[in-house]
């Protein structure tokens, strides 16, 4: 089933940013890290474990003690990091940190456990080093998140769920607009914009900082 939903925003973000196929390339490594970081933050904000509040011109990330800790280790790792910080850090700092913390491998390992990815090892013939690879367990499921977004854009007949609207924002922010809007009917961008405009403020903040971080990467070439 091509548009079967994967269970988490961060998994969808992984499949959109890091998985490449004939229809869609993977984005640059640092941008993958930024995108996954944004997805993880948004997921925890959405689940109520984290909050983003504007203070003195900065969008700070705060831990929300309601409802107990996240059940998965990825969410728990980030939540505990947020709780352990002596001062509240801003969204750009968390995105930067998550981009350099190998969030891609952590997410891929989770997806292996969830049965969405298959872990492989390749030995370099020349260097003798073992390189770990992650491939989609099912190519159709790997294409599902983008296919789902494109279905919303092509039919425009129903309201997008909030997390899918954020996923759409994330897809645009990492530079995959062409893959998203290619061959879409006229009005698709307005339909998408209508959803993005009403994203809650914390998700808007994460989206904005992700867009800025990707642009900074383009300017500085810090990949």
């Amino acid at each position: 089933m091509p548009d079967a939903p994967t269970p988490r925003l961060v998994y969808d973000a992984f499949l959109i940013t890091a998985y490449h196929d004939f229809y869609k390339p993977a984005v640059a490594p640092r941008v993958i890290g930024l995108g996954l970081g944004a997805a993880l933050l948004a997921e925890l904000v959405f689940s109520g474990h984290l909050a983003v509040r504007s203070h003195a011109g900065r969008d700070l990330v705060l831990a929300e003690p309601r409802g107990g800790p996240p059940r998965d280790s990825l969410g728990l790792w980030l939540t505990e990091l947020v709780q352990g910080e002596p001062d509240h850090l801003a969204v750009p700092e968390w995105l930067e940190y998550l981009a350099i913390s190998d969030t891609q491998t952590k997410t891929a390992e989770h997806m292996v456990v969830a049965g969405l990815m298959v872990r492989g090892e390749q030995r370099s013939r020349w260097l003798g080093k073992v390189q770990v690879t992650y491939d989609a367990a099912d190519a159709l499921i790997a294409q599902a998140p983008l296919a789902r977004l494109r279905r919303y854009l092509s039919t425009m007949d129903r309201r997008m769920p909030l997390l899918d609207a954020f996923l759409l924002a994330l897809t645009e922010s990492v530079g995959l607009s062409k893959s998203l809007y290619s061959q879409m009917p006229s009005g698709a961008r307005e339909y998408a914009e209508g959803h993005l405009r009403v994203l809650p403020a914390p998700l808007q903040a994460i989206r904005g900082h992700l867009t800025a971080a990707v642009a900074d990467t383009a300017i500085t070439g810090n990949l």
Binding site: G84, E85, D87, W94, E96, Y97, I100
Partner: peptide
């Protein structure tokens, strides 16, 4: 009490 040193800031500083 939470640690006064920031693990995240330290990691970011190493990458600067």
């Amino acid at each position: 009490a939470p640690s006064t040193t920031s693990a995240v800031q330290s990691a970011l500083a190493r990458d600067k």
